[in-house]
Computed example of a mutant assay.
Amino acid sequence: MPLPTLKEQFAALIATPSVSCTQASLDMPNQPIIDLLAGWLHELGFRCEIQQVAPGKANLLATFGTGPGGLVLAGHSDTVPFDESLWQTDPLKLTESGDRWLGLGVCDMKGFFPLIIEAVQPLLSQPFRQPLIVLATCDEESSMSGAKALADAGRPLGRAAVIGEPTGLKPIRLHKGVMMERIDILGQSGHSSDPSLGHSALEAMHAVMGELMGLRQQWQREFNNPQFGVPSPTLNLGCIHGGDNPNRICGQCALEFDLRPLPGMDPAALRAAIQQKLQPLAQRHQVRIDYKPLFGEVPPFEQSADAELVKVAERLTGHTAEAVAFGTEAPYLQALGCETLVLGPGDIRCAHQPGEYLEMSRLQPTVRLLRELIQHYCLEQG
């Protein structure tokens, strides 16, 4: 059976929903996407290994060639949830509009896989001195469980890894970490006419938020990296839920917040600093305070500026490697021994939004760039 065309591959991937979400009601398997990719890559002669991560959730490692070293071209196979009513087109149908392709995941980042296939096809008749590995992971948009499972397995991958997240074809060698945390306070409800009848979880949370904002100011004084557009770490108080009626002392309150540390900031040390602030507040307000991550953090990422992959990517793109605020799977691949870079055709400004698009003018430049990377790491290297 002939391989689908580039556009047909895009359409097939977009039409196969694979939402990853911390809310179980919205979460979906990614196995159908993995099966599609494995089928196409098997037709091209890749050896396809599927790593089961959880029921319905899997990673794909597809390898062409043998030996140590080589190149990993990586991406996640899941998308964020979507609200169809906010889209002007069908989010699960590849739609051409002017000079853009629209669809859920076309930019972030299912579209990277057809571009890899398009790039490698003309090279497959040549001898690969080092292998090419195509990696597709699950759950990047929620728990990072796919990348974590890969890292936990400890299996060495290639010498270099490129993750095709949306960077506008500019190489990215640094990004901030991502920590999403939750604080639950259990107080004592009671009649609002007499404060002595209870212990307000909401008032305790007010004090907690003050301490968090104080830590934010402290960290922003201590840590700064001008390579980032937002050069300091950020802490966003994202959502709060508590109480049920004005005439009751609030018995329960929960806060969820997002912390983006810079490279060099240790997530464990940040959590310890927060915990140290919470303990005296619990005693003062006579409440119970529970603090835990919503899920495991994504560590900050930095690849050295003098790494071979950085130099190669800068030469091929004509852009100096930069930094971004969003998190990726890069630290997990780096932990497996790969020089790692984030580099893909999409625009982060349209990711996670209705009307997600990919500029068609980026298609062929991406194919050329990937082909040159494959030639450098797999055909030319001894």
Rank of each mutant, 00 (worst) to 15 (best):
R362S: 13
M360T: 13
C338S: 04
Q334M: 15
P345N: 13
L363F: 10
T366R: 00
H352Y: 06
G355V: 04
Y357W: 14
S361K: 12
A330L: 09
V342C: 14
T328I: 09
A351L: 04
L336S: 06
E380K: 11
P331E: 08
A330E: 10
Q353L: 09
E322D: 12
G355W: 00
G355H: 02
M360E: 08
Q364G: 03
E322N: 12
P354I: 02
E359T: 05
L333K: 03
T366D: 08
L343Q: 09
G327W: 11
H376E: 14
E359W: 06
A325E: 11
L336M: 14
L373I: 11
Q375D: 14
P345R: 07
H352K: 01
Q375S: 14
T328D: 05
Q364H: 13
L373G: 10
L343W: 11
L379R: 06
E339D: 15
Y332P: 03
H352P: 06
Y332S: 06
I374Y: 05
C338N: 03
C378R: 09
E322P: 03
D347Q: 10
L343P: 14
E322T: 11
V342Q: 06
P331R: 03
L333T: 01
T328K: 04
S361W: 06
A335C: 07
L379V: 07
E339V: 01
V342M: 09
L358N: 07
G346I: 14
F326Y: 15
E359D: 13
E356W: 01
T328V: 08
V324A: 01
L363I: 15
R362K: 14
G346M: 07
G355Q: 04
Y332T: 06
R362Y: 05
F326D: 03
R349S: 15
L363Y: 02
Q381Y: 07
M360Y: 02
L369P: 12
R368D: 15
A335L: 11
G382N: 13
H352L: 03
L373M: 14
E339Y: 00
D347A: 08
L369T: 06
G355D: 05
T340I: 05
L333I: 04
A323R: 02
L358Y: 03
L379K: 08
E356V: 01
V324I: 13
S361Y: 04
R371F: 08
V367C: 12
Q375I: 12
L379H: 09
G382P: 13
R371K: 14
L343S: 04
F326N: 02
E380Y: 07
L333N: 02
I348C: 02
P345W: 09
S361H: 07
R349W: 00
I348P: 01
Q353W: 04
G344S: 08
L333R: 03
Q353K: 13
R362F: 05
L341R: 01
L358G: 07
L341H: 04
Q353G: 00
L373H: 05
E359I: 01
E339Q: 15
V324T: 12
Q381M: 12
C350W: 00
V324G: 02
G337Q: 15
I348F: 10
Y332L: 15
L343E: 10
Q364Y: 10
H376D: 07
Y377N: 09
Y332C: 09
